[in-house]
Amino acid sequence: MNQGTALHLKWPRQSKLQCSVQNANCVVMVPPKEFGFNAETAKDNEFQQPVTMDSVAVRAAAMGEFNTMVAALRKVGVQVVEFDYPKSEQETPDAVFPNNWFSTTQDGAFYTFPMACNNRQHEVRPEALMKSLRAAGRVIIATDSMESYAKRGAYLESTGVMVKDHVNRTIYAALSQRCEREALEDYAKRIGYHRVVSFQTALPSGLPIYHTNVMMAIGENFAVICADLIPEYERRFVIKSLAKSKQVITISEPQMNHFCGNILQLETVNGDKVIAMSQSAYDAFTPSQRQQLSTHGKLLPFDVSTIETVGGGSVRCMLSEIFLPSRVKSL
């Protein structure tokens, strides 16, 4: 695919597995077989916390959380592609968060992205993943890469830093060392999205939020956001933009710290809406907020406390949406 262009492909008919505009019905998940505390990412990820458990116990606990989540998603009808990659000399403690290095579009494009942390760059295995996606019945027509930006020290960590309103072709993004403005706007042009809403954030430490998807989520008709992190002059603009077409549910910073912003609306293969979140997030939402969210889909809470504490990411980080067309069998 050429830089600055978007694919415009027409499909003669859709299969039952075709997803909607906003929500995917298929996700990639990566087992945490090398999971552990990543000192490199902890430099700007304040959600990570070291624990007293040894590495074997941490990985065993994380694997249990992962397997339970995979089984539950499949049970409700979300297609899960489990990408069990081969180990390399360099361990990848954060591979359980695959949404940071690739994304897909309904046009059949597969994109890879530059990641800021060196040991996370070893997670990028596009050929192996595309093979798994094709085996799962998904069609890849073109590939493109944003990774050349890394040569100039610019990074864009996919749907970690970009929260997409696919319905309105708008990308929301908190700028940080993991989200460079030029790369962000370039990517938006490549996929044909006409609007980018980027903004600054500040935690109590003074650091920006490391990933937008920790403070913000967008569904088909709702948005969750920790607006207090955004400077007031930008905050009003972001909220107004979201409110044009979404029910806006604002969360506090303590709620964000329990990963209330790190949730994801999905669809089952039958078109039913579900909202995946951690048990920590579910418990931190107020009853009225849970009621509001439940009008947009069945709430699916998962206990991923080990992964949240050690890895600094939650359920949404573990889910890479697959929007690729599904292969249609001839009649």
Score class of each variant (00 low, 15 high):
Pro325Cys: 06
Thr286Ser: 15
Ser326Gln: 05
Ser88Trp: 02
Ala42Thr: 02
Leu207Arg: 12
Val27His: 03
Val304Pro: 10
Leu324Val: 09
Ile140Thr: 10
Ser241His: 05
Glu180Cys: 07
Met162Asp: 10
Gln48Ala: 12
Ala42Met: 03
Lys10Trp: 11
Arg120Lys: 08
Phe222Leu: 09
Leu207His: 10
Gly311Gln: 09
Lys189Val: 10
Glu232Asn: 13
Asp107Glu: 15
Ser241Ala: 14
Val304Met: 08
Gln291Tyr: 04
Lys43Met: 13
Gly206Gln: 11
Glu180Arg: 11
Thr68His: 14
Ala128Asn: 12
Gly108Ile: 13
Leu133Ser: 04
Ala72Cys: 04
Gln121His: 10
Leu324Asn: 08
Thr52Asn: 15
Tyr187Arg: 02
His122Met: 08
Leu300Trp: 06
Ala276Leu: 11
Val80Trp: 04
Val248Ile: 04
Gly77Lys: 11
Pro126Asp: 07
Ile239Lys: 07
Arg59Leu: 08
Arg74Ile: 00
Tyr282Thr: 04
Ala154Leu: 14
Leu293His: 06
Glu91Arg: 13
Trp11His: 07
Val161Pro: 11
Val224Pro: 09
Val274Phe: 03
Ile322Gly: 03
Gly160Met: 07
Ser132Phe: 00
Asp272Pro: 00
Tyr111Cys: 01
Gln14Val: 00
Ala217Gly: 12
Asp186Phe: 13
Ser294Leu: 07
Tyr172Asn: 02
Gln200Met: 12
Met215Pro: 03
Glu253Trp: 14
Glu127Tyr: 01
Glu123Thr: 10
Ser305Asn: 09
Met318Arg: 10
Gly297Lys: 07
Leu299Ile: 13
Leu264Arg: 05
Ile140Phe: 01
Ser158Lys: 00
Pro301Gln: 11
Ile230Ala: 12
Gly77Trp: 06
Gln177Asn: 14
